[in-house]
Design a protein around this nucleic acid. Structure first.
Lengths: 335, 335
DNA sequence: TTGTAAGCGTTATCAT
DNA sequence: ATGATAACGCTTACAA
């Protein structure tokens, strides 16, 4: 690798002058600057980040520890968002996955400190409470798509309540009056928040209790969690006769579509279907396209990086309530 | 941050002795080793990787440049595999995405050299030829899920031909005799290779030309690429009357399932359905579960890291034919 | 405007 | 078995 001294020699100046040019110090004679830039170009010089790092005290590295996040197709967008923002801010994102064999959060955190990361982001696969090892206290830490139950760390989460509220209002605005909500397992944070948002919208609109219904698409039998979307959908269609179905996630909507197809009930005409996720190509593969609330993963990733940079600069780590990111409706033709 | 000298002071030895302990040099008095380890523990010392890096000439960093790869749900597994292998080999994988605004491959490559990466992996979203900038010649480079048309770099790709050959043989073994292949756009490498594997299996089994049919599920109209899976499926069912349908990807299978559902044709009973990808939860969300050829992304990621380490150590970059990774059947109930 | 000297936290060399 | 000293490639502080 070519060093700053080699460039200096080639340009016929001291290596300090080269350093000045590299760091955009204006106090260099234009003539020399030219020569030096030429030498840099010629030799293909690139500053050694490691060497720079030990001298200046900042590494410009942000660690990203993910709880299997990159396995979950949509939440990969958290990483994309984080990477884009890091790039814009001149930082390097170092991504570590929890899935690797026998790696625990504390180990990966150590990996981050070894690289002298200036801050760490911990991202989860789905919106959930997470208890981080105490070691995370040593670095500015931001949680994304998850949160500390004791609010020890700032957190970024999707606004699931707003999402349900919004989509329900949209359904009502389009004239749907008997909505069946096929919700996720009630143990899940998102399911609870969405139920709340759903009910609030109905209340504000004066919808009576017997004009909506909420069902769970997962049944727990001992240790087994069984998906009962198909049965639930048939049940609800027969006994409740909804004019719209709100699905807990896009994959639930896929199964609902199948049931409706088999009954020759036309989505978007005979019945409205809405959902949560906007998961990759799924909403587009369905016919008609599925109108669904986007989980704002990309935006969450961006915010997380912003926040961790702020925290590392100001040192005023204001945790408290998680920051909720608004969900938008990806509108297609299903309602 | 605590340094080696602080540890030395605390343990009452010279910093060089601490260095010896940290680097597992056996020539340290056990008594001192104890003291030093205690001091390390107490102060929470961690070696500064950057400082280490300038002295030793290796960085243990491998760059991974991805062509939007992390947007494509399944191919994220390439990164997972790469990360796992890197972890096992004591390397750090630095992932960069091409999607970030105005970032081109050459820029990201520079990012890698700045971090003194020992090698670079270039990964693509789907199996395709890719022309890399010449700068990649400067570092050991391995391509994964793509290849250089002139074979300048070693490459790892899925064995699409074998995949099609294998799944077709399986269909034949189960007694299916009239197979319709709803293939991807013939411009795509995978489509060509699969067609070849498909035909070979049929030939070996003595299936006559009028007992199979191949259709494309994408129609190009000017600049627009239109998915015609639904129409094609209906067409093929009516006019060819297959006993099995082989789909170009799982998302095609989803649409095929819908058509079959609407016609009350039972998958796995009245007709066999097979596919390629094994894309996340899609095959499991379908009822019955979709039997589909896994694209070996995880394994490909692992191999890529292995190969780039070999290349950086031996310097004998043997390119030539891309290395093909075998695809396995994820068997469910659709045929 | 430019250069010298010191120092960052390590590892390598060589003496003790 | 241990430690002094140099070196890595760079930035900072200060002098010229």
């Amino acid at each position: 690798m070519v060093t700053i001294k080699q460039v200096a020699q080639r340009a016929g100046v001291s290596f300090k002058t080269v350093s000045r040019v590299v760091n955009n110090d204006p106090t260099v004679k234009p003539e020399n600057r030219e020569k030096i830039l030429a030498a840099i170009e010629e030799l293909g010089y690139q500053p050694n980040i490691a060497a720079r790092m030990i001298r200046k005290k900042n590494s410009d590295v942000i660690g990203f520890i993910s709880d299997e996040i990159s396995t979950t197709p949509s939440s990969v967008d958290i990483i994309r968002g984080a990477q884009d923002m890091a790039w814009e801010k001149g930082k390097t994102l170092m991504v570590f996955n929890l899935n690797q064999k026998d790696a625990n959060p504390a180990q990966l955190f150590d990996e981050c400190t070894q690289h002298r990361a200036e801050g760490v982001i911990y991202g989860a696969m789905y919106h959930q409470p997470v208890k981080l090892p105490d070691s995370f206290q040593k670095l500015p830490t931001v949680m994304v798509n998850c949160f500390d139950p004791e609010q020890k760390y700032p957190a970024i989460v999707p606004d699931d309540e707003q999402a349900a509220y919004y989509v329900t209002r949209q359904l009502l605005a389009k004239g749907y009056r008997r909505i069946a909500f096929l919700n996720l397992n009630p143990d899940i944070v998102a399911a609870q928040l969405r139920l709340s948002g759903f009910k609030q919208a109905l209340n504000e609109h004066g919808i009576a209790d017997d004009n909506y219904i909420v069902k769970t698409i997962e049944q727990v039998e001992g240790d087994e969690v069984k998906d009962v979307t198909r049965e639930m959908t048939l049940d609800v269609l027969e006994n409740f006769k909804p004019d719209a179905i709100l699905c807990g996630k896009d994959l639930v909507a896929v199964r609902v579509y199948f049931v409706l197809e088999s009954l020759k009930i036309k989505v978007g005409e005979d019945i409205g279907v809405a959902s949560f996720d906007n998961w990759d190509v799924i909403p587009d593969i369905l016919i008609p396209g599925l109108s669904t609330m986007s989980l704002p993963y990309y935006e969450m990733g961006r915010r997380a990086v912003q926040k961790v940079i702020e925290a590392s600069e100001n040192k005023n780590e204001q945790s408290g309530e998680p920051e909720k990111i608004t969900c938008l409706l990806a509108s297609r033709a299903s309602f």
